[in-house]
Computed example of a mutant assay.
Amino acid sequence: MEISVHDIFRARHHIEHFVDRTPLAPSVPLSNLIGAQVRFKLENYQRTGSFKPRGAINKMRMLSEEERKRGVIAASAGNHGLAVAYAAGLVGTSAQVVVPERTPKTKVAGIQRLGAELVFHGTNYDEAEEYAYRLAAENGRSFIHAYEDQHTIAGHGTIGLEILLDWPEADVIVVPAGGGGLILGIAILAKSVRPDIRIIGVQSHASPPWYYSFRAGRMVEVTYRESLAEGLHGGIGQKIFPLVLHYVDDFVLVGEEEIAEAMCWMARQHHQRVEGSGAVGVAALRNGRIPDIAGKNVVCLISGGNVDDERLLGLLEAQERVEKTADRGLSITPPS
């Protein structure tokens, strides 16, 4: 697979009227906390609530008339499905989206509202993807991959272009890492313009394939667990693996409690609604997971904000209870 800066500029031309150029907003609280200049790239402000339309629209613009007549199909943990449904409406094709059974309700409702046919299958993204491929073979729809496609990746690379146009002095870009298409697109653009810029991916301990595979220099099997960052849950792209090794500088891990705290922190400090997958970069920065950033210019990508009301409210209430307990000077021993 080959993806060039030219591909990313062409993607920008294809999608610029159908996506928003999202803000790059300073975070004074986080900057003060870690001793760096931090700005958030707020893709939770994007249409459909995440970065995903950038890649989906660019891919759909490449479909032939015959492919559009047959329709498209995608597997998704939620946000890619929203983007495919949105893009399908723009290009005049029908969409079928396969999601795991426990996909957040806000994402399910959005996919249905945008007119896609929703299919529930499996307990995780990999199971949904396997079933979607089977359906594609049966019904002739074009499969729109969430991350292992050069047009999708080029679309995501437009985020890197916007970042460096708005802040050419950026030294580090911190990116949530799921399948790898988002971080690769950003890294290709950023490294081509600024070879010295650092690109750091963030995963959860519950879904750490890039972290361990990056260190091994080969794709390795890992154990997956349930996570607040369900959008990052699942395997990584075999075709893009060598490119990620070449362009990305490192991957770090964060825990579930750190993700929950980051989601609450964003709500309280910045009044931002951020899903678990979008908050992992904040979690990494707040907990010192990324070395050598003191005095640096750091971009933290907030990749999405599609979190269920009950989940975010529950996390905020739980944190408030913990704080009240601490204020009373009580000690609580966690269950073993």
Results as ranks from 00 to 15, higher is better:
Ala190Tyr: 09
Ala170Glu: 05
Ile183His: 09
Ala177His: 03
Pro195Thr: 07
Arg194Glu: 00
Ala177Phe: 09
Gly179Gln: 06
Gly201Cys: 08
Ile183Pro: 01
Val175Gln: 02
Ala187Ser: 13
Arg198Phe: 04
Glu162Cys: 14
Leu189Gln: 07
Leu161His: 06
Ser142Met: 11
Ser142Leu: 07
Ile159Lys: 06
Gly179Phe: 12
Phe143Ala: 06
Gly201Lys: 00
His145Arg: 09
Ala206Lys: 12
Leu164Asn: 05
Gly178Glu: 01
Leu184Pro: 10
Ile188Tyr: 09
Ile144Val: 15
Val202Asp: 00
Arg194Cys: 03
Ser204Cys: 11
Val174Phe: 09
Ile199Asn: 09
Ser192Tyr: 00
Ile183Asn: 03
Gly179Met: 05
Leu164Met: 06
Val202Asn: 00
His205Ile: 02
Gly155Gln: 05
Arg194Phe: 01
Gly179Thr: 07
Arg194Ile: 01
Glu169Tyr: 04
His205Gly: 00
Asp149Trp: 12
Leu165Tyr: 12
Glu169Asp: 15
Gly185His: 13
Gly180Thr: 02
Leu182Tyr: 04
Asp149Met: 05
Glu169Thr: 09
Val172Tyr: 01
Lys191Trp: 02
Trp167Tyr: 15
Glu162His: 13
Pro195Arg: 03
Thr152Glu: 03
Gly180Glu: 03
Ile173Glu: 04
Ala206Ser: 15
Ile186Tyr: 07
His156Gln: 14
Ile186Val: 13
Gly185Phe: 13
Gly201Thr: 08
Asp149Thr: 02
Ser207Phe: 13
Asp149Ala: 06
Ile188His: 08
Val202Ser: 06
Leu164Lys: 03
His156Trp: 03
Ala170Tyr: 07
Ala177Ser: 15
